[in-house]
Structure formats: C-alpha cells, structure tokens
Amino acid sequence: MEEVCVLRIGHRPERDQRVTTHVGLTGRALGAKGMYLAADDIGVKKSIEDVAKRWGGDFFVENNVSWKKCINDWKKSGGVVVHLTMYGLRLTDVEDKIRNEKKILIVVGAEKVPGDMYGLADYNVSVTTQPHSEISSLALCLDHLFQGKTMNLDFPNSEIKILPTEHGKRFETAKQDGDGAD
C-alpha cells in the first residue's frame, strides 16, 4: 500500500462533529494520509489540522467534497474504494487482497449511506457483522491492513511527543521536556 485515505460521508454538522473528528484522528493515528469530508464543516477540518500540527505528520483534511466525485477521481487515479459496512464481506476474508492494492480510499458513513455507495465500492467490507462504531470499524480496518505496524508510528515535526512510561505521564515538547502528574 502506498496511500490510504478516508472519505467521511453523511456527516451532519449539527450532530456529528465529535464523531467525525474522531474518525479523522483515528485515520491519522493509524496510518492514513488524509481525510476527505463530504460536508461543509470547517470546525472539524480546523480541529483535526490543529492536532496534526501539534502532534506531527502530514495529515490533510479536505472539506466540502462531493463524495461521488471523490470516489470517481480516486478510481481514475488507479485507487480502490473500500466501504465499511456491517453488510459487506468479512474484513478477515478480504484484507490480504485489499492490502495488495496501491491506493485505498476507505469510506466511513454517518447517517444512512446512499444505496449508490454499495455499487461504487470495489469492496464492501464488514468489521464484524454486528452494529458498532464507525470509529472502531476504521481503527480495526487500518490495523488489519497495516498488520499492526502503525501502532508505534513516529510523526515528524511534532510539537508534542508522548514518552512511554509505566506510571504517570511523560512527554517532550519542541521547547522542553515535561512530566505531568495526575
């Protein structure tokens, strides 16, 4: 895999800011290069970009995209579309095949997904065949596709970096080291 991005569809600005922000943050933390947001919510975009600026990496957020155009453009560039849905094929049955693709766009829905999505996707993938969070579906999908290798990513140009410790909180900032107490 050379590139993995997330497309968030069905976002309702009046209801879904927190969940959509967490979709973006999950994608960033687990190896995606960016997120396309098929809604106009500049607050979500700014929130995710602020985290990326402080915590490092090159994660992008493109706001107010047409989801169909995004999918069509992605496919024209040689990429495949993976739609996360509980009605799809089991992730464990198709992850090896998907992993061999060069460009992967993972579609994560919010409200009821348009029926067209099922036909546009190259893979309709179920992360369990049970209802649960789109955030957990994305996290598990990325973890399986990257085979756990993104669990310890190092993000360049970070202003803040957590230092693993058995007890307490330790971190570095671009300015100084710090210890936090709880």
Rank of each mutant, 00 (worst) to 15 (best):
K103N: 11
G178A: 15
C70R: 00
V61R: 02
V82K: 02
R18N: 06
K69H: 11
K76I: 10
E14P: 02
E172K: 13
G180V: 14
V127A: 03
G79F: 04
L120C: 10
R54E: 13
E3R: 09
K169L: 14
G115M: 11
H11N: 10
K68I: 13
T26G: 09
G79P: 00
L153W: 10
E95Y: 08
G119E: 12
V127T: 03
C70H: 01
A39F: 01
M151N: 13
L140H: 12
G31F: 00
M35A: 04
S126R: 06
L84F: 02
L140G: 13
G57H: 04
G109S: 09
D122I: 05
E2K: 09
R170I: 15
K75W: 02
E172F: 14
N100V: 14
S158E: 12
T128F: 10
R18T: 04
G88Y: 05
V107C: 13
S133G: 09
K53Y: 14
P156T: 07
V61S: 03
Q130N: 13
D50M: 09
L84M: 06
H167K: 15
N100D: 15
D93V: 01
P114E: 11
C70K: 06
A174C: 12
K53F: 14
K53Q: 14
S137P: 04
G57D: 07
V4T: 03
E166L: 14
E49G: 05
G180P: 02
F60H: 04
G119T: 13
V19D: 01
D179K: 15
F59W: 05
A181G: 14
C5D: 11
I98A: 04
H11M: 08
S137K: 03
K175C: 15
E14W: 03
W67L: 06
L163D: 10
N100W: 11
V4A: 05
L37G: 00
Y123E: 06
H22I: 00
N124V: 12
V81R: 00
F155Y: 12
T173L: 13
K149Q: 09
Q17Y: 01
W55A: 03
I71Q: 02
D154M: 15
E134H: 10
K161W: 11
Q130R: 12
K175M: 15
L142I: 03
V113C: 13
E101N: 09
E62F: 10
R90I: 01
A110S: 15
A29R: 06
A29I: 08
D116Q: 15
I48W: 02
E172Q: 14
Y123K: 05
G109N: 03
A52P: 00
I106M: 04
W67D: 00
I98S: 03
A139V: 04
R8E: 00
C70T: 12
W67A: 02
I162D: 13
V113E: 07
L25F: 01
E134R: 02
A174K: 14
N64P: 09
